[in-house]
Design a protein around this nucleic acid. Structure first.
Lengths: 208, 208
DNA sequence: CATGGCGCTATACGCAGGTATAGTCTGCTT
DNA sequence: AAGCAGACTATACCTGCGTATAGCGCCATG
């Protein structure tokens, strides 16, 4: 199961432009990326980009849409699979990682995030059944924070790479990150007592 | 202990420009923010900005520096305090939140992130002593991921707010987020067995 | 008093880059 | 054959914005 794209050479020009835009937006961000640069990468004239997409904004929306479409299948698969893959989108979303990270950080890709929240919420309401203590916050809110945390290695990849000492795209990086996540996800930061205490403090503050 | 700035009216012009820049960079991002807009917000001519800071890039660096300086005290305090505050910078960094989030997402503010990692690493090596199972990844890597996760509610604030149904700046939002974090931080996603199993699978894969 | 630094403004320059237009070539329909 | 549509290019336009320059008023200091 290789994720390689089917030879960018013989793709339709429109698709090549979209892919180039995905790359440029991901690498430079929406503002810094230029239509001219995208056109050049796609091996295409400036005007053709406009011809196919109309405007820079529309081009971005096309990227978002395409990403959502290709992600959907992968996403559901990841949800049903073990949580190791589900809560670690870094390894999964491959070439779209940078674009997604930029989009999320800049406030776009809302449908994608909300979809992750939805799936997480399902999973939480499921596991909540076999949980001894009742949660005092709704599953949706918890799912949102989980989603944000799961995506943070992608969004803050540059910083994590600095500390890990290896690129997140490399096999070693992937392996290391996964091991870190396994450790982190299996060890609570706070004991139930500490959490309950802090919660009680919050309640006291709220009452006053 | 109010975090209010001491009356923006009678601050030196240089400081007012810096604060305006902090706001504009935070709200619009570095590229979209314009020196002219910053100057206007600061109630100052365009040229004065250049006079004091020389260039847009230098202005940003001045912002970073100032943020680092004001954060430092607060940061150490949060580190010594209970982990509830330490691992939840959202509540702490108040007016700088948006700027910091942008800066981090765009790959800047590296010293800040690294400082968080440093503190987290200290804390981890401390708590590791009273941990039954030996971690198979170094404390620094885990600290980096923790830092990213702790910052994710700030960086992805817009998306979380959509799910929470309330702004993260409001008292209700702060309260809700804190309760979610308490719950999340006190409940592991994976059992130790599941994690060990996944780790074993990784080991098998690495051997081949 | 002069003179020089400094905080500050007004205005101009230059260009990068999004947008718009006009035109060419190819292929398909009638 | 005629003509139209759509993919594609070349080039022009124009605004926004970072940068640069020239100058003014004010206080200190010799």
């Amino acid at each position: 199961m290789t994720t390689t794209v089917p030879d960018p050479e013989d793709l339709t020009a429109r698709a090549r432009i979209r892919d180039a835009a995905l790359r440029h937006f991901g690498e430079h961000g929406f503002e810094r990326a230029t239509i001219r640069g995208i056109a050049e990468t796609a091996g295409v004239s400036l005007g053709l980009v406009r011809h196919h997409f109309g405007s820079k904004q529309a081009l971005r929306e096309a990227c978002d849409e395409h990403l959502m479409k290709t992600m959907h299948g992968l996403h559901e698969a990841a949800a049903t699979r073990s949580m190791g893959g589900g809560l670690n989108p870094v390894t999964a979303m491959g070439p779209y990682r940078r674009y997604l990270a930029r989009a999320l950080a800049e406030g776009w890709a809302a449908p994608f995030f909300d979809e992750m929240v939805r799936i997480g919420e399902q999973w939480l309401t499921e596991t909540d059944k076999s949980r001894p203590d009742p949660p005092d916050v709704d599953a949706r809110s918890r799912a949102a924070v989980f989603a944000a945390m799961a995506l943070s290695p992608s969004v803050l990849a540059q910083h994590i790479e600095r500390s890990l000492g290896t690129g997140l795209d490399t096999p070693e990086g992937q392996d290391k990150l996964l091991r870190v996540l396994l450790d982190v996800y299996s060890h609570p930061v706070l004991s139930l007592e500490e959490a309950a205490e802090a919660r009680a403090a919050l309640d006291r503050g709220r009452r006053s």
